[in-house]
Amino acid sequence: MRDSGKIAILIALLIGLSLVLVLPGLTPENYEFFLGQRLPKLLAIIVTGGAIGYSAVLFQTVTHNRILTPATLGFDAMYLLIQAALFFFLGGASFLVADRNANFLVSVVVMVVLALFLLRTVFGRSGHDLVFVVLVGTIFGQLFRTLAYFLLMIISPSEFTSLQNKMFASFSNINTNIVLIAMVMCIAAAGWLLRDMRKFDVAGLGREQSVSLGVDHDALVKRTFIVSAILVSAATALVGPIAFLGLMVANLAREIATSYRHTVITAISVLLSSVMLLAGQLAVERYMNFGTTVTVLINFVGGVYFVILLLRGNRL
């Protein structure tokens, strides 16, 4: 099958699943209420999926590996720490904690700044060894998570568990404003890299070869990191951590696509990611009666795929 056919099938799947999520039980009387609830959720899922699928492919290309994705850099922990720190220093009643829109914006901005700061210091010291960078990011993630819990503990040892649960984002309490903000942010960030798609094709040949072919590889890496930071921050603030989704869809997209072109691979990855997230959410709602969360489900499936990928002997 040609790549355009595959993309068409994915689009059809996306539309079909969207209808399954939105339509059931709608009547002329209740549609305003239900749509007001379901459409933001649908948008949030598509934006999150798209953001993760897009950043994972490009990040893997410039880092020349198929195992690491921006999600491994500990963004979820960063989000957690920001929430805990706001709570700790400003108190639960303060504007930045109570107002969800303001909280979302501040979280994303701080995450992007923090991520870039990390990447800069780490890169400044270690040159081009990306595995090192990602390991350092992962450990920073662990540090942030324990620091966040530490702060919560100090705020109130007796309410620790309830505070801990409040800190996680989830699709079920999404609101329209946040989704729209996230969507604009993601589209702008992703759009910035669109003109570089052909450079990503070259970047796949490795740093040396792309420099030889006239691509400013270091600048491309920097741009990719900035965009990944924005996309993953937005996605994390919307649903929380989904470590394995990006890894899974980016690899599947490379296997599905016949072409090596990043325009094609990225499109497939974005669509596939949204479709999977949507299917996961539907499975959780319809068949498991919210007996689990979509993030746990996806991490489970993605994690198994990851082990298979390793066993098939991919070069690391």
Partner: peptide, 30 residues
């Protein structure tokens, strides 16, 4: 089984395997 290129990749793989196992446990816990 998989020949790993760099020293840092090994703990990273272990941590990711840990995330997978934790996800399975969380799935059951729910």
């Amino acid at each position: 089984k998989i020949k790993v290129r760099s020293l840092e990749m090994v703990p990273l793989l272990g941590i990711m395997l840990g995330i997978l196992i934790e996800a399975m446990a969380t799935f059951l816990a729910y």
